[in-house]
């Protein structure tokens, strides 16, 4: 078995340690004897929609986000849509999450169109949400560090990833964090997100592998260290955020 990970714009969209998510997906596959290939895609390079099993799309600085937005308005945006239709998964964080939505509405000026792969819309907010983020969901808790000024609101097709216990999440109002729609996930969990939240990493692995392999069953790993890190970070989020 083999896993293909496409890392979108690692030079521009890799802030706050987001590459840890690619490391987590790779290692958790390798520890199970699954071969892994990671391909970075930069602005101007054609992203082959047939190749990846899973895409990773991290956060970036404003400048990077503008350049990436322009690139996605071209054929790479079409590639990403086609790839999702073909069964690939996407994990996105912060800026990547916002660009997968319908649009980003700044305080002044015209709104910046997104890909509309996720049924979410983001508006600029005044106060930046910076701090530890603790989320509960039916599938397990999630912990990370958020750092964003955008407020993201979910449409009817996207479901929240979980409920905020500590921190702000999507918009600081409705207690939701993240969005799931089919095999596409967006969230504000830096930290990195996936290493400390192994159930989410394994869900993405399962989604990715089933695109080209039948009867994917991921054996259990010893996640004692992962869970210990989550417990420690959760305690910080509860007491010091």
């Amino acid at each position: 078995m083999e896993l293909r990970i496409a890392h979108l714009y690692p030079d521009l969209m890799n802030i706050y340690g987001d590459r840890g998510n690619v490391i987590a997906l790779s290692q958790r596959a390798k520890w199970r004897g699954i071969g892994v290939e990671v391909r970075p895609y930069s602005v101007g390079e054609w992203a082959d929609p047939e190749w990846p099993d899973v895409w990773f799309f991290g956060g970036g600085q404003d400048q990077g986000q503008d350049i990436v937005g322009a690139d996605l308005a071209g054929k790479n945006g079409l590639s990403l849509r086609k790839s999702v239709d073909g069964g690939a998964a996407i994990f996105s964080v912060c800026g990547g999450y916002q660009l997968l939505g319908h649009e980003y509405v700044p305080e002044v000026g015209p709104s910046i169109p997104g890909l509309g792969i996720l049924d979410v819309t983001t508006r600029a907010g005044r106060k930046r949400f910076v701090g530890n983020l603790l989320v509960d969901s039916p599938d397990g808790p999630l912990v990370g560090f958020e750092n964003h000024s955008g407020r993201t609101y979910l449409g009817t097709s996207a479901k929240p990833l979980g409920t905020v216990i500590a921190g702000n999440g999507n918009n600081g109002e409705d207690k939701t964090e993240g969005a799931v729609q089919g095999k596409v996930i967006g969230c504000y969990l830096h930290g990195s997100g996936l290493p400390k939240n192994p159930w989410l990493a394994d869900r993405l692995l399962g989604w990715a592998l089933e695109r080209r392999h039948r009867d994917v069953r991921l054996g259990p790993l010893d996640d004692a260290d992962e869970l210990a890190a989550r417990v420690q970070a959760s305690a910080v989020a509860r007491t010091r955020t």
């Binding site: 890799n14 706050y16 840890g20 910076v130 530890n132 560090f145 930290g191 990195s192």
Partner: peptide
């Protein structure tokens, strides 16, 4: 306060 940097 953000320890994310260790992943970079």
């Amino acid at each position: 306060r953000d320890v994310s940097w260790i992943w970079d």
